[in-house]
Design a protein around this nucleic acid. Structure first.
Lengths: 120, 120
DNA sequence: TACGTTGTTCGATATTTGACGAACATCGAA
DNA sequence: TTCGATGTTCGTCAAATATCGAACAACGTA
């Protein structure tokens, strides 16, 4: 990515419940995960959250470090994707439960996707 | 209870995903919840955790405030119980997922019950 | 090669959190 | 009523977190 190369992605066995729970105890991050819920890869710049870009970068890092998302760099741009398969394998049912509760309370609604992907 | 009366217990509708996730992102607290997993009420003094009693009190308060446990006072003693029904109603599947993951990793194993309940 | 874009990293804060021991409050018992 | 037991609360610290703006680094492009 831009700045530093090769963000660390913990592999399946390194994903821990404690870290995932901690990562998902912040509304911005839950919002980000919800936005990625459909499994599609999203561009960093599509993500809309009411925080400074350095803060958004921080949150995305927490998610990545916890093994919740995967970041891919392509040229100058980054793309983020939910590691749903890995999470479901390692922590069965957790993501579903979080989505269920978050959806019903519209938690993390402050986060959204840019309507127009070109709004990069 | 001892010290101050009537600990606050959020009712069903006040339980939030964010607070529960935060409460369950600490190994001691996950350990406590695991110890209460069978639904039986336990005496405060039965709980064994590698922290000072003021710290244990703190953790039990975090769990109580999040709506995860219910505390009852009887004379000089306190009894704690998991609010499983409420949690399952408000956050379906979450507790199960946490138990599943915590059990398989033996998370929070530092917490246990006194072998002899009289070890009060 | 000089720029502009895109995220990341670096301080700097302010807040929250975990932990401890000591003081305290409440209840039951001597 | 004087103790002893049982938790809670308080004051204090250290460590972790959330945020921000500014400086940076890596790419693509003019």
């Amino acid at each position: 990515m831009v700045g530093v190369r090769q963000p660390r992605h913990p592999d399946l066995g390194e994903i821990t419940l404690m870290e995932v729970m901690g990562a998902l105890s912040d509304p911005i991050r839950v919002g980000l995960v919800r936005v990625l819920a459909d499994g599609r890869e999203r561009g960093w710049s599509e993500l809309r959250a009411p925080v400074a870009k350095s803060t958004l970068s921080h949150h995305l890092r927490v998610l990545r470090d916890a093994g919740i998302t995967r970041t891919r760099q392509e040229g100058t741009r980054c793309y983020v994707q939910l590691r749903r398969r890995d999470l479901d394998a390692r922590l069965p049912g957790l993501l579903n439960a979080v989505f269920l509760a978050a959806d019903s309370d519209n938690l993390g609604a402050q986060v959204s996707l840019a309507e127009d992907p070109s709004t990069t």
